[in-house]
Write a protein that binds this DNA or RNA. Structure first.
Lengths: 343, 343
DNA sequence: TTGTAAGCGTTATCAT
DNA sequence: ATGATAACGCTTACAA
C-alpha cells in the first residue's frame, strides 16, 4: 500500500533491465551517460525511493547504529545524543536510541534487540546495575563493532571515550579545600560504574595532596544514580547527622546534584554559607538557578561526537582492528564567585 | 561476519527443509510436535536469531515507529518518549527518535528519511518553524499511519493527543488574577504552533471572565521556543520597560520559563514579590529550585503512551480507518503556597 | 554498455 | 506433515 515504486517499475517503464537501472542509480559502474541521465530523471520524476530494507538484506548492513544510555531525560545523555546524531547524520547513519533506566535486564534486552535487528555498531554507556558483561562480551566476540562512552567496561577491549573524571573531581575538591573546607563529603553513584571510581580517585588525590584526612563516613553511594529521591534524602540526612558534620559536599552526578540541593533546602541548610557544594552536572537549569554551586561540566556533546566517529571508523574499516584507544576529554570546572544569591 | 546462523543452517543440520524449519519456528502451521520440538531445541542450542531484515522485506513492515520531536533535551519530550517507549516496547516495536531542533528543514529530512527507511508509522510533534505541511501530507496521503502529539497539525486528519492547554492556561491565569494580579503578560512560543494558540485562548478567556482587559503590548512571542536566550532576554527587557509594567507573567513553555526566570534575576526582579510567575514546565529541576512559581504540568508520559497506542492500532488495523479522534488530557496546575524562599 | 541470473533470509503457496 | 519453489527489492558476477 505504501511506497510501491521499485526499481522494476522504472526498468519496465524505460524498457531497461533492473540491473541497468540499479547501476544508473548507484553510479559505481560503467554505464552510458545518456541511460544514466534517463534513469535518474525518470526516477526523480516518479519519486522513486530505494527500499533500504532490501539494500540492507543484500549488503548485510543496516546503516544504523544503536545507542544504549540510562535515561534520555538526563542532560548529560541528551547532550551526548545530540553529538552522536550530528556525526551519524552526516555520515549517513541512523541512530536508534534505547534506555536502560539503570536496569541490567533492560540493558540485556536492548542490546540483544538491537543486535538482532542488525545495527552496524553500538554506542554503550552502561547501566548502574550492570556487573555482568557477558551479553556485551558475546557480541563483541562475534565482531560487532562497539564503542563505550562515559560509563565504560574496562574488561572489554575496544575504543572508549570518557571525560577526565579524575581531574574534574580533583579540581573541584581542590577548589573546595582552597575555599576553606576541610570536611568534604562525597555523594556518589553506584560503585559498579567506572565514573564512580574515577571521580572517587580524584577526590582522594586532592585530599591527600592537601593533607586532608579521608573520612569513610563522608563517602555515600546512591545506587540508583539519584533516580530515587528518597535515597538521596536518606544520604543527606545521614551526612547532616554526623557528629563531625561536613562543611562541603562533592556530588558525583547530575541527578544527585539536584536531589541533594533539594534535600539541603528542606533541611534548611544554606548553600554556600552553611555548606559548600561542588557537583558534576550538565543541567542548564540547575546552572541558571543555583549560582552558589561550583559545577564540573563534561563535554557531553563532544564525547558523543568522538565516540560516533570512532564507531563508524570501526564499522567501515576493511580489516579487523586490533589497536584500541581510550580518549579522555577535559571536564570544565565552573566556579561562581558567589555572584548570585545563596540558595 | 556477524550472526551467520540462518534457518538454512538449521535445516541442513537437521536434514529438514527450510520451510519446515520456518514453520516450526513460526508456529502458525501444521507440523508434527516432534519435529517442532527438535527444531526449537536445536535453534535454542545454537543460538539462532531470525534475521528481522529479511522478515521485514517479506512482511513489508519493519516493526519500528518513528518519532519526531524538537529536542530530546527537553523535559516534556523526554518524558513523552519514555511513555512512547513503554508501550512500543511491550507491543514489539522499535522506537526511532529524531530531533528537528526546531528546524523545518530538519523536520522534512527526518520525516522522509524515516519513511524511506520503512517505519510502520510516525509520532509527530511539529517544529516551531513548520508552516508548510506538504512533506507530511504527502506521506499521509500515501497511507503512512501517523499520530500527532502536543504540537499538532489541524489540517491533517488523523489521531491527535494533546494536553488541555486551554484549560491549563485558563487555570493559571485565573490563579494569577485571584492572587491579585491584573496586569498579566503572556510570554509565548512561535505562533506557528498549535499549543501557542490554545494557550493564548485560555489566557484570553480567563482575562475576559474576570473583566481584565487584554493588553496587546503584554503578548510576546519567542520564535525559537526559548532556545535562544537572547530572544527571551529581549522580551523580558521589553516587558519591564513598559510604562504600565506587568505584575505577572504567564509563560508558555519549559525553556521559556527557565530563560525568563533567569532574565528576571539578572534584572534584579524578585519572584513572586515584584512579579508573579506561572508557567508551563515539566522540568523537575526548575520545580526543585523555584517554589515561588506556579506551574502547569502536562501529562507528558501519558500523552506519549496514548499516542503510541493509537498509532499501533492504526498500523495494525486491517481496514482503512476513517474515524479519527483527538484525545485531550488534563494539565495539572501546581500552586505553591509561597512555602519556599523567593527567587 | 547492457542483460541475465543468482543470491541475501524469510515466509507462503504449491505439490507430494 | 513435509519439501520444493517463488517471492519480497536490491546488488553484482558473469555473459553477451
Amino acid at each position: 500500500m505504501f511506497q510501491p515504486i521499485t526499481i522494476k517499475d522504472i526498468a519496465k517503464a524505460l524498457g531497461l533491465s533492473t540491473s541497468t537501472v540499479s547501476r544508473a542509480l548507484t553510479d559505481r559502474y560503467e554505464i552510458s551517460a545518456e541511460t544514466k541521465k534517463l534513469v535518474l530523471e525518470y526516477a526523480e520524476k516518479i519519486g522513486y525511493q530505494p527500499n533500504p530494507i532490501a539494500q540492507s538484506l543484500k549488503e548485510r548492513r543496516s546503516h544504523s547504529i544503536g545507542v544504549v544510555v540510562a535515561e534520555v531525560a538526563n542532560n548529560y545523555f541528551s547532550q551526548a545524543i545530540n553529538g552522536i546524531e550530528s556525526i551519524a547524520y552526516n555520515r549517513g547513519y541512523h541512530v536508534i536510541i534505547t534506555q536502560t533506566h539503570e536496569s541490567f535486564d533492560r540493558e540485556v534486552v536492548n542490546v540483544q534487540h538491537m543486535a538482532s535487528r542488525g545495527v552496524d555498531g553500538l554506542l554503550i554507556s552502561l547501566s548502574s546495575e550492570t556487573q555482568n558483561l557477558s551479553h556485551i562480551k558475546y557480541l563483541h566476540e562475534k565482531g560487532l563493532p562497539m564503542v563505550f562512552f562515559d560509563r565504560v567496561a574496562n574488561e572489554i577491549e575496544t575504543h572508549k571515550v570518557i571525560a577526565n573524571n579524575y581531574q574534574g573531581a580533583f579540581d573541584a575538591t581542590e577548589h573546595l579545600i582552597k575555599s576553606g573546607s576541610r570536611k568534604i563529603a562525597h555523594l556518589t553513584s553506584s560503585p559498579n560504574l567506572s565514573i564512580t571510581a574515577e571521580r572517587f580517585d580524584g577526590y582522594r588525590a586532592a585530599l591527600a595532596q592537601y593533607n586532608v584526612p579521608f573520612n569513610p563516613a563522608y563517602l555515600l553511594h546512591c545506587e540508583h544514580g539519584g533516580m530515587i529521591q528518597a535515597e538521596v534524602e536518606l544520604a543527606v540526612t545521614q551526612l547532616l547527622a554526623l557528629a563531625d558534620r561536613p562543611d562541603a559536599i562533592l556530588i558525583a552526578s547530575d541527578r544527585l546534584s539536584a536531589g541533594c540541593l533539594s534535600s539541603l533546602k528542606m533541611h534548611g541548610i544554606k548553600v554556600p554559607t552553611d555548606i559548600a557544594i561542588a557537583g558534576f552536572t550538565n543541567s542548564d537549569v540547575a546552572d541558571l538557578f543555583n549560582p552558589a554551586m561550583t559545577t564540573i561540566r563534561q563535554p557531553a556533546f563532544k564525547i558523543g561526537q568522538i565516540a560516533t566517529e570512532m564507531l563508524i571508523s570501526l564499522i567501515e574499516s576493511k580489516h579487523p582492528v586490533t589497536e584500541f584507544e581510550t580518549r579522555m576529554l577535559d571536564a570544565e570546572l565552573v566556579v561562581r564567585e558567589s555572584s548570585g544569591a545563596a540558595l
